[in-house]
Amino acid sequence: MKILVTEKNEIIRNLILHILTKEGYDLKLASNGKEAFTFLSEEKFDIIISNIHLQYYSGFELITFIKSNEHLKDTKIVILSDNFTPENILRLYKMGIDDMIEKPFTPMEMICRLGKLSELITKEKNLGKFTS
């Protein structure tokens, strides 16, 4: 299961690296919008965890990029932020994200949410195999 983590704070990035590699995920780390954009253009990820406010490309732009791109449409999007105002939450869900994690968070919360998402992904993939 490949995950792209875009987080501007170094400490959280490291923490997430530790948490998720222990769970067996295959991680790629990005620290700003430009790196995320480059990674997204190069390879396909199963899940992307990202901030909203990033340099170069905002989280919103990344979401529209993913949604409008044929190859990347199935990528699950998780937003990790400390900035969830009611308007933003509504906006994000309307844009089609799959989950939200609010800072401060517990590692267990992240593991559970991602676990659920990866279950969903495996189910979808199996269904795809069935129908194709």
Partner: peptide
Amino acid sequence: KVLKDYSIFLKGTEF
């Protein structure tokens, strides 16, 4: 300082 930086982003048992 490192302890403080970590504690800002965590809650619950880890905190």
